[in-house]
Simulated scan of single mutants.
Amino acid sequence: MIGKVAAFLALVAAANAGLAPAVAYAQPAYAAYAPAVAKVAAPVAYAQPAYAAYAPAVAKVAAPLAYAAPVAKVAVAEPYDPNPQYSYGYSVTDGLTGDSKSATETRNGDIVQGQYSLVEPDGAIRTVTYTADDVNGFNAVVDRSAPAVVKKVAAAPVAYAQPAYAAYAAPAIAKVAAPVAYAQPAYAAYAAPAVAKVAAPVAYAQHAYLG
């Protein structure tokens, strides 16, 4: 590039000095030299993720319940019966399970009287008679009767009716018809073959010969 410029300047000087006609050379249009600059794309601006403001979880404590102040209970005196009285009783008899029992009780003031009985497993009947009062306390008398003896009566044998059998009939005998008498064919009387009768020899008289 520098050499071309020097040659051009020499030609111009010679022309000015009359050594050579001045030749007008069109200067080549040189593009302004500029080194290619690599275009670097502008960095993409990434949106920063939105972070929730960090705050430690705070345990919520329920507010204490407001309890009403205890109400003072006022004891109410129950009605008092100076002479209580009652009377009751019950009885159970179950033929299926064998359970049999009964009870009665009566109260008159501070004196209680009662009685109950039941059948024990062996069949004995136990009866308890009791009394109770504020002086003697509870007192009971137990009475036990012997178990009832159950006589087992043998059941009479059941008479079973004999099944009615039909009269036995002898099996029917097939009757065979008497053989039919067939008539013998009539044969003609056999005649003996006729015998040819031979006539008896004729007796010839002997000739008397004369001696």
Rank of each mutant, 00 (worst) to 15 (best):
G3E: 11
A10D: 13
V12K: 14
A14F: 13
A14M: 14
A22I: 07
P28A: 09
P28F: 02
Y30K: 01
Y33N: 04
A36P: 07
V44D: 10
V44M: 08
A47S: 12
A50R: 05
V61M: 08
A63N: 10
L65Y: 11
A66F: 05
A68D: 15
K73C: 01
V74K: 12
A75M: 05
A77F: 00
E78G: 05
E78W: 03
P79C: 00
Y80H: 09
N83Y: 12
N83C: 01
S87K: 14
Y90C: 00
V92D: 14
L96E: 14
G98D: 04
D99V: 11
T104A: 06
T106A: 11
T106Y: 06
R107V: 11
R107M: 14
R107W: 06
Q115N: 11
Q115M: 09
R126M: 10
T131P: 01
T131W: 00
A132L: 06
F138G: 02
A140V: 07
V141I: 09
P147D: 04
P147Q: 07
A154Y: 04
A156G: 06
A156E: 15
A167L: 10
A172P: 05
A172C: 00
K175I: 06
V176Y: 11
A178M: 02
P179G: 06
V180R: 07
Y182N: 05
A189M: 10
A191P: 01
A192C: 00
A194G: 05
A194W: 06
P201V: 09
P201W: 08
V202G: 05
Q206D: 14
H207W: 08
A208F: 12
